[in-house]
Design a protein around this nucleic acid. Structure first.
Length: 660
RNA sequence: GCGCCCGUAGCUCAGUGCGGAUAGAGCACCGGACUUGUAAUCCGGAGGUCGCGGGUUCAAGUCCCGCCGGGCGUUCCA
């Protein structure tokens, strides 16, 4: 055996160390600061402990806290000490799995006697964890043959189940296990009393941790299977520094501040009356105006883009959904039927497509009519499971900006391409401008439509996405059996992704409904159908915009665009005159009288996020001017001629200028 | 659907641990006074089947059960 090993570092340089040197030795050899910061190492792309021995010729990188790998290791190690704390506090507790997730980690437990964690327990667990950290326990890795592993965890049935899965080489276990061989499992021992089954790697010792916070308790099924034991899950977040933790918590607060449910209530836009039912919003006058503005603009754009407008009822005989197939595979998500005296069943519609199809089928169609683009703000009802309804983003009653395009095979590519352009332009007009796309392709097993159609459609979607320079995530085999799909995701002002529009090809429904048109060859042909919704649902889009703008809707969407405040009662006539002028110009404006101090009225208007708050007093009456407080500006601008103000607001509205 | 948590005035919350007499506060609302030049004027008033139903108890906002509504989670994996 050679006396030295040579490894290559990320910068391309090489280091030679004595044989048997560990990753920690390498870090020390590079420099004392790195040695101190080092958490783990990556050898030939695989994350390992700092104590791992370096093989000769390997590519080695030292993992430090301020990296994705580093944070992941910190989170994983923090999950372990949480498990240790829980076992200390609840002797006999069983621990299942404790993986890393986005921004944090969780660990699943089963407490003795079927006990449950309460929110108060989090504080106890937290302080026990800090004791474990203060003890600076090492994470000692060991490898054991299967039977030895089973013996170590003889009172931990979940761990044993995992070990057996590893032994079987079960494919649900991460492939990394394979490098150890399925005959061996690894453990990490913190103390004699606490050993956990784990692939690793971990930080060298618990003293390296501490910037964490336990977030919440939740229930979760063992292995995600509803038929298995329900375990208690604790979620936490952990970071490399107090500052990073604080920044993360701040991001959460920011998201909370923007919560559309909260803003919707504060700004008196909508509510969810208990009397109506879960997931069924009602829009108040101010929210109604916002919707009106959103919908009107959408309608205008659809007219310009060559759509026809159709209307369809909210209920229909069940037979329509039998013909469409919805009742076969979608019944769970539908409201149950109502039965009339003669026994006929009716369903509230969960989708608009069958109606649009009937419009198409209402008479014989010629190829000259295609493409036909039918648009409807169609209200649909879906029986979402009670646990999933959430604000406006997941509701049981919603209005889709739904359209179905019927076209020939030859027109398909052109339609898809112009459609995607249309979607992106329209979403931009509403103020979203950071997009990425997800393309779901043909599922492996079964699919309707011929391969040629699938391939062609998929290719068009792909090329349009790429041509636009947009990020494209491929969801290989993730399409529905009836056609490929592209979904447009938008990132909002604080970087969160929302799924917005979907464009879905459908090779199935035209077939089920026997749709056809007469081609130039005087023969019957089957049209291709494209389903698409740009907002998804008006309600959801409303919620997304509200969060995106943190309630500061751009002027063109604001429920009240201008509020005029007279300084004293005797300024009211002038204020009213200004308001009348603004209303004549087509703006949403109002006067508030002077029965309260100006400061109070300004404050209220600002809290209500009115984009333009005008103050008029003696000087303005004399000069035909207004004092302008623009939302987002600290200082008012005095003495602005009314004409100038009208011009300003007009420009804001016409350009659909983004809110400050 | 399931698990945990929550539901008190229009809103935000106190009171619930350990059951005890007319259930409190701030904001909002209504009335009056103040006549205001840029983020909370003063005084007064009204407002509650303590989510709903059932149970335990001499006594229930408080304890138990069911339902309704809401929040969070159900991020495949040692």
């Amino acid at each position: 055996m050679a006396a030295t090993v040579t490894v290559r570092l990320p910068d391309g340089s090489e280091r030679t160390l004595p044989a048997g040197a560990t990753a920690a030795d390498l870090a020390a050899a590079i420099g004392p600061r790195l040695a101190k910061a080092a958490l783990a190492a990556k050898i030939d792309g695989r994350l390992v402990d700092l104590r791992a021995v370096l093989p000769d010729g390997a590519e080695v990188a030292v993992v430090t806290p301020e990296s994705d790998d580093g944070r992941e290791i910190i989170r994983h190690s923090t999950a372990h000490i949480m498990a240790q704390a829980v076992v200390r506090l609840w002797p006999g507790a069983r621990y299942a799995i404790g993986p890393v997730i986005d921004d944090g980690f969780y660990y699943d437990f089963e407490l003795p006697g079927g006990a449950h964690f309460s929110e108060d327990d989090l504080a106890r667990i937290d302080s026990e964890m800090r004791k474990v950290i203060a003890e600076d326990q090492p994470f000692v890795r060991r490898e054991h043959p299967i039977d030895e592993g089973l013996a170590i965890f003889d009172d931990q049935p979940y761990k044993q189940e995992i070990i057996r899965a590893v032994a079987r080489g079960a494919d649900e276990v991460d492939a990394a296990v394979g490098t150890d061989g399925a005959s061996v499992v690894s453990t990490y021992e913190n103390t004699k009393a606490f050993v956990d089954l784990c692939r690793g790697p971990h930080v060298p010792s618990t003293g390296r941790l501490g910037h964490f916070r336990l977030m919440r308790v939740a229930g979760a099924y063992w292995r995600g299977d509803v038929h298995r034991e329900q375990l208690q899950r604790i979620y936490g977040t952990a970071w490399e520094s107090e500052a990073a933790l604080a920044a993360y918590l701040h991001r959460l607060e920011e998201a909370e501040r923007r919560d559309h449910r909260k803003l919707g209530h504060e700004l008196d836009l909508f509510s969810f009356p208990e009397e109506v039912g879960s997931g069924l919003p009602v829009f108040h006058p101010k929210g109604g105006i916002v919707r009106l503005a959103m919908e009107d603009y959408s309608r205008r754009r659809h007219v310009e883009a060559g759509y026809d407008f159709v209307y369809s009822p909210h209920i229909t005989k069940s037979s329509l959904f039998e013909e469409s197939g919805h009742l076969d595979w979608y019944a769970d998500a539908m409201y149950p039927p109502m039965t009339l005296d003669d026994g006929t069943q009716y369903h509230v519609k969960p989708m608009n497509c069958p109606f649009h199809i009937l419009v198409f089928r209402s008479r014989q169609r010629s190829y000259r009519e295609l493409p036909m683009r039918m648009f409807e703000f169609g209200s649909v009802y879906r029986y979402e499971k009670s646990g999933v309804v959430q604000g406006l983003t997941r509701v049981r009653g919603m209005t889709q900006d739904d359209a179905h395009i019927f076209c020939t095979r030859d027109q398909m590519a052109g339609e898809l391409s112009s459609l995607l352009t249309f979607v992106l332009e329209l979403l931009r007009d509403y103020g979203l401008d950071d997009f990425w796309l997800e393309l779901s392709t043909k599922p492996e097993d079964k699919a309707v439509g011929d391969d040629d159609e699938w391939e062609d459609a998929t290719e068009v979607l792909r090329s349009v996405a790429e041509g636009r320079g947009l990020e494209l995530a491929l969801d290989e085999g993730g399409g529905a059996f009836y056609g490929p799909k592209i979904s447009v995701q938008a990132r909002d002002a604080i970087g969160r992704s929302w799924q917005m529009s979907t464009i879905q090809l459908d090779f199935q429904l035209p077939q089920r409904f026997g749709l056809e048109y007469i081609g130039a060859d005087n023969a019957k042909h089957r049209p291709i159908m494209i389903h698409r919704a740009l907002f998804g649902s008006v309600e959801r889009f409303f919620g997304v915009l509200l969060e995106h703008y943190a309630g500061n809707l751009p002027t063109w969407l604001s429920p009240e665009q201008v509020r005029v405040l007279p300084v004293r009662d005797d300024h009211v006539p002038y204020a009213q005159g200004a308001t009348d002028r603004l209303v004549r110009e087509g703006f949403r404006a109002g006067t508030e009288d002077a029965s309260e101090p100006l400061g109070t009225r300004i404050r209220r208007a600002k809290l209500e996020k009115v984009p333009y708050v005008l103050v008029v007093g003696d000087d303005d009456v004399a000069g035909g001017t207004v004092g302008v407080n623009r939302r987002g500006h600290d200082r008012p601008e005095r003495g602005v001629p009314l004409d100038e103000l009208v011009r300003l607001v007009r420009e804001d509205v016409d350009m659909r200028r983004r809110a400050p």
